[in-house]
Amino acid sequence: MRVTQGTFSFLPDFTDQQIHEQVQYCIDNGWAVSIEYTDDPHPRNTYWEMWGHPMFDNPDAAAVVYELNECRKIYGSYYIRIIAFDSSPGWESIRLSFIVNRPSEEPGFKLSRTEVKGRNIQYSITPYSSDNPQGSRYK
């Protein structure tokens, strides 16, 4: 099951050239771009691991694509996303976030229903991959 999170997630995966152009758009708007990775695709897993520092002072997107490829060398089987932070007052948050790398196989999520008081149902989802400990979830 294909994980869809962030912007562009219903589009086919971007090529490096397309990533470059999106990142250049962010940089031209004055947003700080950074790279993050994780092997826990749960939608409530908000804070992923940072790959290096946010890149504040690179005028060209080639730097981000370069770092992305460095990250892929080590975490090529993880989810990697690019986020753009807008520091302008009144916003001070993420403007754009999109996945740029995903595992070759995505087993999806397990939906469990728990019957509670009054025959109400509580739902929860768990990624199948998180049965394994961190670091050995994706090949």
């Binding site: 890149m55 005028p59 730097a63």
Partner: peptide, 8 residues
Amino acid sequence: VLKKAMGG
């Protein structure tokens, strides 16, 4: 430094 110089 190299990243800063990219594109230039």
